[in-house]
Write a protein that binds this DNA or RNA. Structure first.
Lengths: 237, 237
DNA sequence: AAGTGGTCTAGACCACTTG
DNA sequence: AAGTGGTCTAGACCACTTT
């Protein structure tokens, strides 16, 4: 399982920051020399990392560490799409920001001890100036130590890009659990719904390499005009 | 793009029934001879079909056409899981069966003309004897010509396995659109909910090779005890 | 023991991007 | 022109399953 070792080392290089987001990997021949394997073996390791969207290959240019920019966020992490049109990047407005302590349930989901310090960040997301959903993000404060509200609000790109650039926390995947709920008064006001209307509740645990949880996010979504879209694999061309 | 040609030919062999579900492919060396390419090129084509779950490799035994059995159905097409436990195969009870004509919306989703002949099949799915969800399936009658209620009720395996075995229709993927709705009286009675309670509505279009739509299915799901679970990729080990 | 897929090698040539 | 990834070859040996 040589290619496994190569893959592990490449992941270590990325998660340690030795190769930064957007940075180029060494070329395939050099990697092969460094690891003492053939180019084919390097390619196999890189193939898998490309399949996971951790690396991006560009023929003729090189292989780069994938940035969690808008395009990737839309592709991988934003599943809502209006029924009448194509997917679109949402406008995000910060509603509240506070440092707090994890409840027992939050601690379990994030792999922390109950009462651990966390950041709580609430956002309102809109499409075409219409409120669509409301996110409540919970972050392990020790993983994002020093994060400030100003830093969060003034970020240039996506939230995950901020995690990656400023804290070396690369979100590589997530698990979402979706259910239907009756909206509370708070959510109803934010989304322009009647209290008790049906809405989606999405609980997302985003994780980094090694499946380590990095973020807990609970979204309440108005699905009068948009759907949660899920593709059950199967390309085959 | 030799391996692309190999892949296309293998797909043609499968969808034509030349290699039946569960049947073995020729071994890699023979395939290489047949296509006049190296084993590595055959492997690449087969790799992609395995990634799409169309083929299954078993070291030392051979490569087989994947059957749409319970295991695969659970893995790929059944996303509901109880919050208190692991995923579990649902019991399916036929509620109604009739031959009818496609509405305009159904025809659009299935790629038919409005008024085309369709089968309408309603099922109730339960976990641990508790009703969980209610499916309304719409099938193009010309694609499943000769399908009878008895055949449907007496099938041995999954519904998709019946499509595959009896009609040569292999479902390889699907797109699901999920929204929250207030349940109608019919659904409420079936699921033991109060009328107007929030529930998930899942609209699934299942497709075969070439993305041709094969089935439309609308599910109403009670999420008091179970979630719709979605994994946003990212393995990376 | 024979046959299968799983991994790996050490090249080759092609397509694409950049200076 | 030089450098990169993309594809392909023709082997080799290993791990596993079946006879």
């Amino acid at each position: 399982m040589l290619y496994r070792d190569v893959k592990r080392t490449l992941i270590a290089d990325i998660s340690s920051g030795a190769v930064p987001p957007g940075g180029a990997l060494a070329n395939e021949a050099d990697l092969a020399k460094r690891f003492g394997v053939s180019i084919g073996t390097v390619r196999r390791a890189v193939d898998e990392l490309v399949a996971d969207h951790i690396l991006v290959r560009q023929q003729g240019r090189g292989t780069f560490v994938g940035k969690l920019d808008r395009e990737r966020f839309m592709f991988q992490f934003f599943k809502m799409a209006r029924r009448d049109g194509p997917a679109e990047f949402p406008a995000v407005k910060l509603l509240s920001w506070l440092k707090s302590r994890a409840t027992q349930a939050e601690a379990r989901l994030l792999g922390l001890v109950a009462g651990a310090a966390v950041f709580r960040i609430d956002n309102l997301l809109s499409l075409q100036n219409n409120p669509l959903m409301h996110d409540r993000i919970v972050l392990d404060a020790s993983l994002f130590s020093g994060l400030t509200q100003a830093q969060f609000e003034q970020r240039a790109g996506t939230i995950y890009e901020l995690y990656q650039m400023a804290f070396g926390v690369t979100v590589v995947g997530a698990e979402e659990r979706v259910q239907a709920v009756a909206v509370s008064q708070d959510s109803a006001e934010l989304l322009g719904l009647a209290v008790g209307s049906p809405a989606l509740r999405i609980e997302r645990i985003a994780f980094t390499f090694d499946q380590k949880p990095a973020e807990l996010r609970v979204s309440i979504v108005d699905t009068r005009d948009a759907d949660y879209v899920s593709r059950l694999v199967g390309q085959s061309n």
